[in-house]
C-alpha cells in the first residue's frame, strides 16, 4: 500500500499536536508503519503550525512533500490556503470555518483574504468547510474543537469508528476522554 499522507495545520495553541498523535496511534494500532512530525517550540506561541502524519507499509521520511498530501486538515481557514499546495491532485481539504487574524492583519500591515474557499476550490473540488468551534462551544469547551475536526476527518476514511474511539481515548488526558468522544461524535455526524 502506498503511504497515506495527512497534513494537519493551524495556529499554535489550537491543539493540532494532539490530533496528529491520535492519528499516529490509530495507524500504529492498525499495524502500519507510521511517522508523525510535530512542531514544538517557538511556533507554538500563536505561529503557523503544521504536523505531518504518514502511514503505510514502509515510511521513510516523516515529512510530506509539496504535492503529496492526501488530506489537508486545517484548524483555521487562512492556514488551509497557506498549505493547500501540499495537496496532491484530487486531494481533500477539511477546514474549520474559524478565522484568527495574524498580527500583521491586526496591525493593518496586511489584509485577511476574504475569498479563501474559492482559493481552496481552485486546488481541489473536495473542500469541506465546517464550523467546529461552534460545535465545541455547544458541547461546552472550545478546547475540544480539535476532536470535532477529527470526527469530520474520520467520516471520510474507511477506518472503523471503533478504532477511532480507541485511539482517541488512549491519547487524550484521561479526565477529558468523555468530552472528547462527544466532540468526535458530533464531528462525525456533522454536515459540512
Amino acid at each position: 500500500m502506498q503511504s497515506i499522507n495527512i497534513l494537519i495545520v493551524g495556529v499554535g495553541g489550537q491543539g493540532t499536536l494532539l490530533t496528529s498523535r491520535v492519528l499516529g496511534n490509530l495507524a500504529s494500532d492498525l499495524g502500519y508503519d507510521v511517522k508523525v512530525s510535530e512542531v514544538h517550540g517557538m511556533a507554538q506561541r500563536g505561529g503557523s503550525v503544521v504536523t505531518h502524519v504518514r502511514f503505510g507499509n514502509k515510511v521513510y521520511s516523516p515529512l510530506i512533500e509539496v504535492g503529496k498530501a492526501d488530506i489537508l486538515l486545517s484548524f483555521e481557514k487562512m492556514e488551509a490556503l497557506r498549505w493547500v499546495h501540499y495537496l496532491k491532485e484530487r486531494g481533500m481539504v477539511i477546514t474549520n470555518d474559524q478565522s484568527i487574524n495574524p498580527m500583521p492583519v491586526i496591525t493593518g500591515a496586511a489584509e485577511y483574504p476574504d475569498d479563501i474557499l474559492d482559493g481552496l476550490k481552485k486546488s481541489t473540488a473536495e473542500v469541506i468547510n465546517i464550523n467546529a468551534l461552534d460545535i465545541a462551544k455547544e458541547i461546552g469547551n472550545i478546547r475540544v474543537t480539535n476532536s470535532v475536526l477529527l470526527g469530520v476527518l474520520a467520516k471520510y476514511t474507511d477506518i472503523d469508528y471503533k478504532n477511532w474511539e480507541k485511539a482517541l481515548s488512549h491519547t487524550v488526558p484521561p479526565r477529558t476522554v468523555e468530552i472528547n468522544l462527544k466532540a468526535f461524535d458530533k464531528g462525525y455526524n456533522a454536515r459540512g
Binding site: 500563536g46 509539496v66 490556503l81 497557506r82 495574524p102 498580527m103 500583521p104 500591515a109 496586511a110
Partner: peptide, 17 residues
C-alpha cells in the same frame, strides 16, 4: 518536480499570548 506554488498570504509570526 512539478508542484503548485504557495499562495501569497499574510505571515503568521508567533506572538505573545
Amino acid at each position: 518536480v512539478n508542484t503548485q506554488p504557495a499562495e501569497e498570504l499574510p505571515n503568521r509570526p508567533p506572538v505573545l499570548c
